[in-house]
Design a binder for these strands. Structure first.
Lengths: 108, 108
DNA sequence: ATTTGTTATCGTCGATGAACGATAATTAGA
DNA sequence: TCTAATTATCGTTCATCGACGATAACAAAT
């Protein structure tokens, strides 16, 4: 499994450096999908099984306000996007945000 | 950007289904890296700039107990692995866990 | 203008996260 | 055995999350 055999000492590296922007960006994106409900919402939007908020609510075992909160979190993180469509709101994936998430995770 | 133009209605899908195992697994892994300090720790271990807990502490602007907690979280999530090496503990990446994270995120 | 339907926000509550200092546990060496 | 060094755990404090019901905000139709 893990190969911790050889000693590996810290090279010349900033001592106690503050978190880098990349670290913060990844942490923020990861946090957006760090909840089963949000993962589910994201998957539903990706598969385009549903777009309108009301439909999403119907597919989740959660109250409308709770789903709205989760959608807001996904939106604030830039993973999801919402367009007003009459009295309803049609959510869809923000391709750029999702790509960035994949890129940052893949680049680990 | 987003193409929310066409209507997409929900097909035949379980109403209010509980979160699937995959959703929970991804959420759990994502949560492990949903904090800048943990991302940084993971990056340090990936680049093998440091393995021993003490060195990691020296590279973070956090108390020893806090770093230990974050390492425990990463370990519990299966992203990191620790082997006892004398009085010290040598941490290293759990390749399988990291691969699973990448796989789940990439599969979105 | 009023009503109806849809979504966002507010306020609250219980649970959990994040940080720290202090202390225990463990191991190697004197 | 006792000490020194390293790491994990405990207990506390403050802040934030997650969930809900209730209510406000908004658009369309009557």
């Amino acid at each position: 499994m893990g190969d911790c055999g050889e000693e590996c000492e810290a090279g010349a590296l900033d001592r106690a450096a503050p978190p880098s922007d990349q670290d913060e960006a990844l942490a923020q994106l990861a946090w957006a999908i760090a909840h089963p409900a949000r993962v589910r919402l994201l998957r539903l939007l990706i598969s385009r099984k549903a777009c309108v908020c009301g439909e999403l609510v119907g597919l989740m075992p959660l109250a409308q306000s709770t789903v709205s909160q989760h959608l807001k979190i996904l939106k604030d993180a830039g993973v999801v996007q919402g367009e007003i469509d009459g009295p309803k709101v049609c959510y869809c994936v923000n391709a750029a945000g999702l790509a960035r998430l994949k890129e940052l995770v893949g680049g680990l």
